[in-house]
Amino acid sequence: MGDIFQSAGEALLYGLIGFLVMGLGFVALDLVTPRRLADVVWRERNRGAAVVLGGQMLGVGLVVTKAIGASESEDGLGYGLLSTGVYGVVGVLLMTAVFALVGLLAPGPMGAAIFEDRDERPHPAAWVQAVTYVGTGLMVGAALS
Rank of each mutant, 00 (worst) to 15 (best):
T132F: 08
V51A: 12
V89N: 01
A38C: 03
L144E: 02
H123R: 02
G108W: 11
A28E: 04
F26W: 12
P107D: 14
Y14E: 02
Q56T: 00
V40K: 11
M22E: 09
M57N: 10
Q129N: 08
S73A: 14
R45T: 11
S83R: 07
A130C: 08
I4Q: 12
A113P: 01
A97Q: 10
P124G: 06
A11G: 11
V21F: 01
V52A: 13
I68K: 09
G23P: 04
G111V: 03
A38W: 11
S7C: 03
I114P: 04
A100S: 14
W42D: 13
A97T: 07
V98G: 03
P124N: 07
V140G: 00
L94F: 14
L53A: 10
G15L: 07
L37N: 02
L58F: 08
M110H: 10
F115K: 09
V102T: 02
V134H: 08
E72C: 04
H123E: 00
A113S: 12
A125E: 07
L13A: 12
R36Y: 15
Y133F: 14
G2S: 12
G80H: 05
E74K: 07
P122S: 02
P107A: 09
F19C: 08
G9H: 07
E120Y: 14
V90K: 00
D39A: 13
A130W: 05
G80S: 04
G2K: 12
I114D: 07
M95Q: 14
R36M: 10
D75T: 13
L93W: 08
R43V: 14
V86F: 12
A38Y: 12
A11V: 04
E116M: 13
I4T: 11
R47K: 15
T136Y: 00
L13F: 08
N46F: 10
A106M: 14
M139H: 05
L104V: 11
G61T: 05
V60R: 01
P34R: 11
G15F: 06
G9E: 09
L29D: 03
G61P: 05
A97R: 11
V52M: 11
T132M: 14
T132H: 03
V128E: 04
M22R: 08
D39E: 15
A49M: 15
R47I: 13
G108E: 13
A142N: 05
G137C: 03
R121M: 12
A38R: 12
M95D: 01
L94I: 15
M22Q: 11
V131S: 10
S83M: 13
M95W: 05
G54E: 06
A130N: 03
A50H: 00
V134K: 03
E116L: 13
D39V: 15
A70H: 05
V64Q: 03
R121S: 11
A125K: 10
G23Q: 10
L29Y: 07
A142C: 04
L24T: 12
Q129M: 15
F115S: 05
T132V: 14
L16Y: 01
P109D: 15
V40H: 04
S7I: 09
L12S: 08
A11N: 11
L37M: 09
L16F: 10
G108R: 15
P124L: 02
V51S: 01
R45F: 09
G135Y: 06
M95H: 03
L20Y: 01
E10A: 13
F26I: 13
V128N: 01
L105K: 07
P109G: 15
G80T: 04
T65I: 00
V41S: 05
T65C: 01
G103S: 09
D117G: 04
